[in-house]
Design a protein around this nucleic acid. Structure first.
Lengths: 224, 224
DNA sequence: ACAAAAGTGTTGAGAGTACACCCATGC
DNA sequence: GCATGGGTGTACTCTCAACACTTTTGT
């Protein structure tokens, strides 16, 4: 490896793709820019990596600064370094992603520079919400990776898909939103129970408008 | 995304993990350093990304410069940015990997600074060949990803696993080296043929010390 | 002849998929 | 009583893994 100094070089940034479920639809946490460049467009929360700062640490710091969201577990998606991806200069962005329960992470109120908002997938897909830079690519890649992660019948997640106590239907709705199609209720439940990852919370039921539902939690006291 | 200038920031490098099959063993293309730092240790071919240079392009350029290897298809592995990974300063390395037929890519003869060599996996694993920086981590991660890629029964590779004409046993040996265990010959062959990715080369047989073997090639004229 | 690699099918287990009806509650 | 979501089991298909012997060549 060569080692020279002070050549013109790309800068390093991080960006985070946070997914959640909003109104039975997949949604992504984005920053609405109120200033140029890209005024009015949406962008992923992120920013420059400081000297001697780890990548995941930088992503968490920027996420907290820009959205107030903390206590999430990010997974690396990949690096995006196309020279033209940012018109202001050459930056290499390392992207992270995860899934969270939106209610557990209230987002920051908007200030005069930007505003953090959950944007429905339909608005992203439909071009209703225009994304800055190459963030549309990143978001799409992140969704593919999220699907791949939830597909694995072994680990079955590792993300914060649902609150600590949840009904199987709530969990199924998350899967359906991520995959963009309905799943068979019986197959979903039997497979999940066969994995032995969840257990019932005794005498706990979610009461609502209809028949109360059995509450579950993840086994091994590992929060998911 | 904030935009400030001339903070102390990490530099961006790329590193490539090239796998091949040598003497029925998995091997990795490494640079033996003849100069400090890390004199005598092995390192992945790689180096700094230039301004306005794409990441994959930088990886290919450094690979060509340091090993003479060209015409390979790199796949991104991920970014490694631990602040302490390079004692000389904070660098973020974007790692790439692939599998190639070593015979099709002769490596550079050693010069006085470094030498490109194929190092057997056993020497890496056994600590016989010490790797510089965090390159041991990267190499292990790359092998896991390579296994995952070859596991997928659909795409079944996309790498240059074998020469354009090959016997099924030759291909099987690649798989066995990558997974580190023997595979059942009948299962391997029947599954591969069922995928309809290969076809026989008529009247072509590889003759050797024993019974001649039928030669195959990848279908669709897509080289693999 | 013998050593070495090439080639060839069947069976059993498990996972995934499709599919329909009754139950408990709120209104 | 009816609308809404909760809850349950079986049959078929397909994929994966285990497993042994004959064939062809070079020496």
């Amino acid at each position: 490896m060569k080692h020279t100094y002070e050549y013109p070089r790309p800068a390093v940034t991080v960006d985070s793709v946070l997914f959640t479920l909003r109104a039975n639809d997949l949604a992504v946490l984005l920053i609405r820019r109120r200033k140029a460049p890209h005024k009015g467009k949406f962008a992923l929360p992120g920013g420059f990596v400081d000297a001697n700062e780890g990548l995941a640490a930088a992503a968490l710091r920027e996420l907290a600064e820009e959205t107030d969201v903390t206590d999430v577990t990010l997974e690396q998606l990949g690096a995006y370094g196309d020279p033209g991806r940012d018109p202001r200069g050459h930056t290499v962005s390392v992207a992270y992603f995860t899934f969270v329960v939106a209610e557990a992470h209230p987002v920051k109120a908007g200030d005069d520079a930007s505003e953090a908002v959950w944007v429905h997938w339909a608005d992203i897909e439909g071009g209703n919400a225009e994304l800055a830079f190459d963030h549309a690519t990143i978001v799409h890649d992140a969704r593919v990776r999220l699907q791949q992660r939830l597909d694995d019948p072994r680990r079955h997640a590792g993300f914060e898909l649902v609150p600590s106590r949840f009904t199987l239907s709530e969990l199924q709705r998350v899967y359906e939103a991520v995959f963009g199609r309905t799943l068979d209720k019986r197959n979903f439940r039997s497979r999940l129970l066969a994995l032995d990852l969840v257990e019932t919370v005794m005498a706990a039921q979610r009461t609502g408008r209809h028949r109360p539902a059995q509450l579950y939690r993840w086994k091994n006291s590992r929060k998911r």
